[in-house]
Every structure is written in structure tokens, then in C-alpha cells.
Design a protein around this nucleic acid. Structure first.
Lengths: 217, 217
DNA sequence: TAGTCTAGAGAATGGTCATTCTCACCGCTA
DNA sequence: TAGCGGTGAGAATGACCATTCTCTAGACTA
């Protein structure tokens, strides 16, 4: 036997960490396998033992990042009691993300732009991510009692903010989208929760201002 | 003299037509210069006479398409008298675009995903497009008397709809974004134009339903 | 008609890249 | 110690591609 399953998993994680770093920073097609190999500090032989092709590695990178992002948002929102705050916290999450120094847009949209038309597995992975991500967002909004129309609009605000922040190298779209969402939420006739009621976060996270995006970094 | 300026311009147009077709359909990096040459039905020598490099051709393709899209939206909106209708017509334009059989998302976001980190001129062109496009959208909204916050949100809805429609291969996001915009517009306290007043398009374009996206094709 | 210029068609060049292969070596068993 | 399965390091392979070059032929001048 060459390698225990646990050791394989550790190496796979090490490789995906490196791949994610270089692919996200510089683009998938702009990075060759030698660079991935070097970034992961693994021999080429091992790289192809862990993933039979670059495409497989790309799909795995996208999937792992998807899982990571989904649970991060769930956690971010989980301990907020007020439904409207839960919705707005999505945009606070975006604001923190946009402030990360190596933020470079949506990994899935980037991959779609690069490989969408020529690489069916990658396109399918992007499609899957977007559907699941959308379901997560709209789930948070509708669970707070708002209409499906509001939920759709909140989701589109999120997507628009990510695309805009990437190209403009600015975190402002998070706040702008948050403001748009506030307008949608406070005016929704089907529910119209009054703002200001039931505010405050439980211990473990600092207070977030109600009307403004929390600053990160 | 090798070629008159007018003839050069005609050939340049012929080449950009072809380049736009193949680049947009299959991605910039996935298409090689021989394919562009073949699609334009021009000898290779001529291609490099018209654009000194593939990068130059890509930038020119993006710029021409930008000019085209900007004036198309201006025209689309121009003859609508009611301010709120002018805003919503943006989404009708999107709906028609999304219904085109070869719609494949935002050419600029696609190019940014492909080349953004490695190709500064392309990144600059995308940046420029997004700023100008945003100014156009927010100009239409604020000229209709709405707040800057509403204008920002409308713009983000547009960007989100384009990204979502591309990946999901669906035109629905146009209608969803339109609905979100309607919620924003009809509830904007700073202006609150009553819906239903001053409706109807002038001759030359068919009537658009007020609450639903106009079907294209 | 001889000379010169330019164009078209496509091959050659030089470089890159994903993937595979070689080879010397290590740890283990008998 | 001889044999064996697997390893690291990196070179070789085969394909692709942007860009340039060659060769042939037509158009135009004198």
C-alpha cells in the first residue's frame, strides 16, 4: 500500500490550498501545473496521483471553496435573532470578504468566464454553486417572512455587488447593496417588520451597526 | 499607398464582427488567431496589419461592443416619457438580450475572469465599461427623481441579473430584477411616483406591459 | 515587356504547457 | 545483502499557439 487514506487526504488538502491560492489570484489558465506543484511543494508525480488532470483539480477547488463559503455564511447568520438582521448580515459578510487584500471577485464567475464554454464539468460546478448559493440566500430571506420577489431581488443584489466590487477594486458595493436590501425589506408590504425591534447580537460577535456596514480590517 | 482609410475601416469592421462572434461564443483564450482569421475570411497577414496583436483586437472588440450597448440602451429608453417606465425599460432591454440564442453573459465580466489578473489593458477596458455603464444606469434612475441609493441598487440588480442569466441559461433574472426595481421605485419615499400615471409608449415600439417583462423573439 | 510593389495562402519559428517518463534512491522483507 | 515496490526530482514528449516569414502571382508603371 502506498499511502494511508488519511495521508492522502492531508496531501489533497495541501494541494488544494495551494491551487486555490494561485488559481484565484491569477486565473486558472494563466497558472500552469508546475506552478501549482511548486506552490503545493509536492512532486509532479504526486500531483497527478491526487488529481488525474488539471480539470479535476479545478472542479475540486471550486467545490471545496463552495462548501467553505456556504457554511461560513450559515455560521455568520446563525446566531442573529432578528430576521431582518439575518438578511442584512449577508451584506456584512460580503463587506468583510471584499476587504480581504486578495479579493478578486467570485471564483465561480471567474471560472465560468474562463472555461464555461469549453469545459462542461467546470460549467456544471459553477451552475451548481450558483443554484445552491441562491437557495441559501433566498432561504434566509423567505424564512424571515419576506416574499419570494424580495428574496430574488436580495440575491441579485448580492451577485451584482460581487461582480462590481471585483472590477472596481472597491468594497463599497457591499454597503450599496445592503442599503438596497434595507429599502426592500422595510417596505415589503407582506411583512414590514419595523426596524429597530429585537436588535443586538449574542456574545461571540461584536455589535453591528444597524444602518451601516461593519468595517472589516 | 496600400489601402484607403475607408477600406481599412471596412476590413476592421469585418474582422471585429468575426472576432466578436467567436470570442463571445467560446471565450478569448479558447479561440486561436487562425480561427479568427478563418471566421473573418481574411489572410493572416491582413489580420496583423489591422491589429498588431491579439490583445489589441480583444480590447477593440470590447470597446466596440461597449459603444454599441451604451447607445442601444439610450435608444431603448429615449422615447419613453414616464420616468419610472424609463427605469423599468432597462430590464426589458435585458430581457430581450437574455433571450438572444447566443447570449452567454456579460462580455466584460467574461473577459475579466479570463484575463483580468494577467492583462492590464483588458482589465482597464472592463473597468472603464463598468464605470460608464453604471453611470448610464444611475443617470436614468436619478434623472427620474430617485435617490442615489435607489440608483445604486438598480444598477446592482442589473449586474446580478446578467451574471445569473448567463450561468443559469435563463432569461428569468430579467423579470426578477425588474420586479425588485419596481419595489424600490414604488416605495421610494423621496419621490414615490404613483404607478399607472403617464403610461404608454410613443409610436415605433409596441406597448410594454407594466408589471411583466416584454417577451422577445 | 521588364521591373517593382503588394497581396494572398499557408508554412515555419519559437515558445508554452499538460502529461508522462526516466533514473537514482530509500525502506522494507527474507 | 539481494530484491522489490514505491518515491522525489526533473527532463522528455507531443500538442498547441501567437506571430513572422516565404513564395507565388497579380497589378501597375515606364
Amino acid at each position: 500500500m502506498s499511502l494511508t487514506t488519511a495521508a492522502q487526504e492531508a496531501l489533497r488538502g495541501q494541494l488544494l490550498d495551494a491551487a486555490e491560492r494561485v488559481f484565484y489570484a491569477r486565473g486558472i489558465q494563466a497558472v500552469n501545473m508546475s506552478e501549482v506543484r511548486a506552490a503545493a511543494d509536492l512532486p509532479m508525480r504526486r500531483v497527478y496521483q491526487l488529481f488525474p488532470s488539471k480539470d479535476d483539480m479545478v472542479v475540486a477547488f471550486l467545490r471545496r471553496r463552495h462548501d467553505c463559503m456556504m457554511s461560513a455564511i450559515e455560521d455568520y447568520v446563525a446566531d442573529l435573532p432578528a430576521p431582518q438582521e439575518r438578511v442584512l448580515a449577508i451584506f456584512d459578510y460580503l463587506d468583510e470578504w471584499f476587504h480581504e487584500p486578495d479579493f478578486r471577485g467570485c471564483p465561480w464567475m471567474n471560472a465560468y468566464g474562463e472555461l464555461g464554454p469549453t469545459n462542461a464539468p467546470v460549467a456544471a460546478e459553477v451552475h451548481h454553486h450558483q443554484q445552491a448559493f441562491r437557495a441559501l440566500i433566498t432561504g434566509i430571506v423567505t424564512a424571515a417572512g419576506y416574499t419570494a420577489g424580495v428574496a430574488n431581488a436580495v440575491y441579485l443584489l448580492v451577485e451584482g455587488a460581487v461582480a462590481t466590487a471585483a472590477v472596481q477594486h472597491s468594497a463599497d458595493p457591499a454597503g450599496e447593496a445592503r442599503h438596497g436590501a434595507e429599502l426592500l425589506l422595510t417596505n415589503d408590504r407582506s411583512r414590514a417588520p419595523r426596524p429597530g425591534t429585537r436588535s443586538g447580537r449574542p456574545a461571540g460577535k461584536p455589535d453591528a451597526p444597524t444602518t451601516r456596514v461593519r468595517s472589516a480590517r
